[in-house]
């Protein structure tokens, strides 16, 4: 029997970001079952579907690019898989891409990814420069806060796509600030922990509506 390997790029938005990476894996498995795809299972006493994850998204973080890899006993196109899954996933989850990969590529994501860029959504449309300088002066020792119009456009584009597909109820209109950690080789910087450790800054931090993983940085051998 031939096995077919797929890599899914999944967006996690809104309240779905409060779920853990493990919760997300279970939700994807159930969506696959609801779509009645023929899954490949592990052997042994407790057969589980064969799944492989990219880096674990911290609970509370949204993402434009969570990776999951799955194996099917049937040969379907990536687009078919994507459409069927999007139909069965609950609100807040959206498959941006499903592509067939080679067996040799399966299960290696964590070795290929070395870092990420985070995005912070703030609910204040004005005074971007003031907020940026405030964030950099308070938390600048951890990394650089910056505004990238390109990242913001990309984020809005992707969110609009998810809204159009009915997978988010509400549209949030804020600004996006990117964060790059100074330290190399931090796969996902725990901005939430940094923020929460500074309780005296609670008032500034109220403007934060969410932290998103915008993109992963790949090792030279990895393809994006």
């Amino acid at each position: 029997m031939t096995e077919n390997f797929y890599r899914l790029t999944i967006g996690v938005f809104d309240t779905a970001s409060y779920l853990s990476h493990q919760d997300e894996a279970r939700i994807i498995e159930r969506a696959l079952r609801r779509a009645d795809f023929k899954l490949v299972f592990t052997q042994g006493f407790s057969p589980r579907p064969v799944l492989s994850f990219g880096p674990a998204r911290p609970t509370g973080f949204g993402s434009l690019t969570d990776f999951f890899e799955i194996v099917l006993k049937e040969d379907v196109t990536g687009d078919f898989l994507k459409i069927k899954l999007n139909d069965k996933l609950p609100a807040g989850f959206f498959v941006f891409e499903a592509k067939k990969i080679k067996e040799s590529e399966f299960g290696k994501l964590n070795r290929l990814i070395r870092g990420s860029t985070l995005g912070i959504i703030i609910n204040s449309p004005n005074g971007l420069d003031a907020i940026l300088s405030l964030l950099n002066s308070r938390f600048g020792s951890y990394g650089l806060f910056a505004h990238s119009p390109e990242s913001e456009r990309n984020f809005i584009e992707k969110t609009d796509k998810v809204i159009k597909n009915g997978k988010i109820y509400q549209k949030k209109r804020g600004r996006l600030i990117t964060f790059m950690p100074h330290e190399a080789n931090v796969v996902i910087p725990r901005l939430d922990k940094i923020f929460l450790a500074q309780s005296s800054d609670q008032n500034i931090l109220q403007i934060i509506e969410g932290i998103y993983i915008l993109k992963y940085h790949w090792n030279s051998e990895g393809a994006g």
Binding site: T15, A16, Y18, D23, R34, T59, G92, Q206, I208, E209
Partner: peptide
């Protein structure tokens, strides 16, 4: 103090997904 729970408040709650995460059906 703000009269709503904001993003960082929820991050300090145990398993926030039980209150906010999307349910199917």
């Amino acid at each position: 103090m703000d009269r709503v729970l904001n993003y960082l408040d929820w991050l300090q709650i145990k398993k926030p997904g039980q209150y906010l995460g999307p349910e199917h059906n």
